[in-house]
Amino acid sequence: MDALNLIAAVQALQPDAKVREQTDQPTLIVPAHALVALARQLRDDPTLRFDLLETHTAVDWLDEDRFELLYLLASVPLGHHLTLSVSIDRDEPVVPTLCEVYPIAQWLEREVYDMFGILYDNHPDLRRLFLEDDWVGFPLRKDYEDDFMLERPE
């Protein structure tokens, strides 16, 4: 399915989803509470069949005081791609987990938790993935600092 049809089809499922302009891959901004239901519909709908969560990552928009969570979905049988973008409050970074829809999300969400400290509601095993268990802080947050880091000299 091409990008325009894809966006129309997804918006029919979830009218709250807004299109982000000027992206390489069709991108929809969805509210956090609608995420899991929408993902399940995307996976099960016979014309969409998004059966693969390619990757999941986050962006820390420090000045706008929000985290943007990105879910890159793909359909192997139909060969199309879609990005879902969810924005959440930086002070209260809680979002429902996608584990029940895509089991791979367990690992991806653990990584994002490790780096950004996003808390996934209902995640079965939310522990650090790469860093030591006693690590303090979340290093990919823009305001992260520790003694090891070097500042670039002016």
């Binding site: 290093p139 992260y144 520790d146 090891f148 880091m149 070097l150 500042e151 670039r152």
Partner: peptide
Amino acid sequence: FMYHSYTTVR
């Protein structure tokens, strides 16, 4: 990765 890295050995 010399600057602003939490983990890269310099």
